[in-house]
Design a protein around this nucleic acid. Structure first.
Lengths: 142, 142
DNA sequence: TATTGTTATACTCTATAACTATA
DNA sequence: TATAGTTATAGAGTATAACAATA
């Protein structure tokens, strides 16, 4: 088990961690009857005030046509609303409803708790990890 | 930016990292014309010798019916083969073809390189990160 | 009776292309 | 002409339920 290439080993651990955290996230979102994509979009809309559909597509790094369906489902459940933009009549602006704000808050609180529970670290290690993670080349910091 | 709850902050970084590594993985797999699920299954089959379909479902933590389709596509491309089990005639055993072994090796080598490039760490930090990750509560170490 | 793998079905996410209504 | 959003279409992953073959 020991003695392997350290670089290879760290990547193995890293991908195990990615899978684990992703699975935890998916399970937490599912507890709120949301998919991963829906949970991310709801959070973005709830946290960033009125945003055009287009901005959601950019943030999610997906095609705009996807966003239509995801917002359809969030809107059907009363978590998000489409509104006309006063500045540009082509644009539809997204706003979280009161219920949407509640769900987003509860969901992401649960996500954070779950992730911290998985980490099982003391304060020192947590600070060290934070320092290391701060250097990672993130495509899109959230 | 600074001064927030350290726990909250670390989770933000962690999920940004998860998204980033996952996106890199997806892009690398796509360069081999494979989906994320196909890449994972191919690696498991190529690395674990003859395995029953059922074992793949357990490893992937998904329903057995999914595996049928994923293996169908890998088999259509000549990367994997279904074989009859001599011990139990209900079981189909999976083996990577020579081409499947090649692809699995090249793909995962590229995945490791990409992940290391994203990390941008010196040796000391890499050792530290490895130590921290070793404590994380992985659902399924690979 | 229980298990292995498949099929049928349905839903979500994903992209591309074509369309509309604006700009 | 270019852009925002939608629709149509297609493919992939996911789960549930029902099924045949085998244990």
């Amino acid at each position: 088990m020991t003695g392997g290439d350290p670089t290879e080993e760290i990547v193995e651990h890293l991908f195990a961690l990615v899978d684990s955290l992703r699975a935890g996230f998916e399970a937490t979102a599912a507890a709120f009857d949301l998919s991963v994509a829906q949970a991310k979009v709801l959070r973005y809309v709830a946290g960033s005030g009125p945003v055009p559909m287009r901005d959601v597509a950019c943030r999610m790094r997906c095609d705009a046509s996807n966003v239509t369906g995801i917002i359809d489902r969030l809107e059907d459940r009363g978590l998000v609303e489409r509104r006309a933009s006063s500045a540009d009549r082509r644009v539809k602006t997204l706003v979280a409803t009161a219920r949407g704000q509640e769900v987003a808050g509860a969901l992401w609180s649960a996500v954070r708790s779950g992730a911290v529970a998985q980490l099982r670290m003391d304060d020192d290690d947590r600070v060290t990890l934070l320092r290391l993670l701060g250097r990672v080349d993130h495509v899109a910091p959230r």
